[in-house]
């Protein structure tokens, strides 16, 4: 028995999902962060965030198509994390790293929190 493993498949699929997001194709939820709106796919959000997993597995909430996040969430921090979900690349801007880390805590993205924490400690 043998098999062919396409080593790029995961990144090829993620790139296509990000293309669908940027063209607003099959996006099924709007996330409201203060006055900014972000369109996304529930499946990608719940695959990457513990908070969204809890929301969209709740039978009372999973059919809603718009969610407002806590007003303490920084839209820029959320935008950076949403891009990370769809690209696997986390933008590190000195001025935003704390806000990204706090937003990742809120979204229950523990591995990103740990990585941000290590980055902050190393840059100190």
């Amino acid at each position: 028995d043998s098999c062919i493993q396409f080593t790029r498949h995961a990144s090829d699929v993620l790139l296509n999902l990000n293309r669908l997001r940027s063209r607003d194709i099959l996006t099924d939820v709007t996330i409201l962060v203060n006055r900014q709106q972000f369109r996304a796919h529930k499946t990608v959000l719940m695959a990457c965030s513990g908070l969204f997993y809890s929301i969209f597995t709740d039978s009372l909430k999973c059919n809603m198509n718009a969610f407002s996040l806590d007003p303490k969430v920084d839209p820029e921090g959320f935008a950076i994390l949403l891009d990370f979900m769809y690209t696997s690349r986390l933008t590190l801007k000195e001025s935003f790293i704390v806000s990204v880390m706090n937003t990742a805590i809120y979204l229950q993205m523990d591995h990103v929190v740990d990585t941000c924490h290590r980055f902050i400690k190393s840059s100190d």
């Binding site: 043998s2 062919i4 493993q5 090829d12 293309r19 063209r23």
Partner: peptide, 21 residues
């Protein structure tokens, strides 16, 4: 895939969705 001979294909695996139609 325990015990299976895996051949690694480094090339693209699926079509690329264009940035716009």
């Amino acid at each position: 895939y325990e015990g299976v001979n895996t051949i690694k294909e480094m090339g693209r695996s699926i079509h690329e969705i264009p940035r716009k139609e």
